[in-house]
């Protein structure tokens, strides 16, 4: 594979971030809200892609990691009145811990078993959010808008209800996670991960321990997913058990496949496409989940590489 300079890659991603920064002044208010939501959820997909795209591990249990970030942030705000920054940190930490625990237990399983086992653990987590409803409020969920103090920076206050604050907050977290994923894939760790994905035995013979690299990928993946869940709570004020259900494990898989597994910009593209398609379709038909199903089927049958994957094979082989 021809490797162009690192500069081109970083420049491309920086350009995407700048484009998003500029879009907020151009697009109508509704699309500003949509884009903010897309960026938050794209962070989730970026996290998912780290595991699926680079370590080659398909999980059906990421809802548990996303929801860990969500609940840790939401519950500490609800019960202890923690500030937004600290609550975000706790959310990220909680999902990192959960991802570590999940990895230590499940990575022993082979690839297909891993898929089923992660789904089982996630289902147990979902049931637990219902079982401990005295604390979590179960499926009804809770809101934190009353308890959440505005962010303070540079002597100014930023209220979470302000659409511009939402947008730029989402952009900052998205940019950080995107750059993290680019760095990760270009770092030696990332190359070993791709080695694990392509040929685990050979990587082992070269002296790397595949298990610890997989664990590292899962922790990175889960932490990013948790950051997304945590940010979602701060921006949209709601926490409920539906976010821990199996559908929320399927969504990041769908977004990643659509955008392009193993491409750094694929998750953003997939999330954006799917969010807009669902939004437009729900105005036309009442069964938008049918669309989710059909998209999954079409992608896996005819376009397994996704949009960015297609672009990479055809035009730009240097894309990370």
């Amino acid at each position: 594979m021809r490797r162009p300079g690192a500069r081109a890659v970083w420049a491309l991603h920086l350009a995407v971030i700048l484009l998003l920064l500029g879009l907020q002044v151009v697009v109508p208010p509704f699309h500003q809200i949509m884009l903010a939501r897309i960026m938050v959820l794209a962070v989730y997909a970026i996290g998912y892609n780290v595991l699926l795209g680079y370590a080659g591990l398909m999980s059906l249990g990421h809802a548990m990691l996303f929801a860990s970030g969500m609940y840790a942030t939401g519950l500490t705000i609800l019960y202890f009145g923690v500030g937004a920054g600290a609550a975000f940190g706790l959310g990220v930490l909680a999902s990192a811990v959960m991802a570590t625990a999940l990895g230590l237990v499940t990575l022993r399983a082979s690839r297909v078993s891993f898929l089923i086992v992660t789904m089982m653990f996630s289902q147990a987590f979902y049931l637990a959010t219902l079982y401990f409803n005295e604390i979590t409020m179960g499926d009804q969920g809770f809101i934190i808008s009353g308890q959440l103090a505005p962010l303070r920076a540079g002597g100014r206050e930023f209220a979470f209800s302000d659409p511009a604050v939402k947008y730029n907050l989402a952009l900052v977290v998205f940019a950080l996670c995107l750059m993290l994923s680019v760095w990760l894939t270009r770092s030696p760790i990332g190359r070993v991960l791709v080695g694990v994905r392509e040929n685990e035995e050979r990587t082992r013979l070269l002296g790397y321990n595949p298990l610890s690299y997989k664990l590292l990928a899962l922790i990175a993946s889960g932490t990013i997913a948790g950051a997304s869940g945590s940010l979602y709570t701060l921006m949209f004020s709601y926490v409920g058990s539906s976010f821990a259900s199996i559908l929320y494990s399927i969504y990041p898989l769908l977004w990643t496949l659509l955008g392009g597994t193993g491409t750094t910009l694929g998750p953003l593209l997939g999330t954006a496409l799917m969010t807009y398609v669902v939004d437009i379709a729900s105005g036309l038909t009442s069964s938008y989940l049918l669309l989710v199903g059909a998209t999954l089927l079409i992608l896996i049958m005819w376009f397994p590489a996704g949009v960015m994957g297609g672009i990479r094979t055809r035009w730009a082989r240097w894309l990370p």
């Binding site: 297909v112 399927i250 199903g293 059909a294 896996i300």
Partner: peptide
């Protein structure tokens, strides 16, 4: 057509799940 690849078939049957469910709803 997916040559029964384990992961691809899982994704495909998730797709089937939603298609069947929503068609029945309709």
């Amino acid at each position: 057509r997916l040559e029964y690849k384990p992961e691809s078939t899982i994704v495909a049957t998730i797709g089937l799940l939603y298609i069947i469910q929503q068609l029945v709803l309709t």
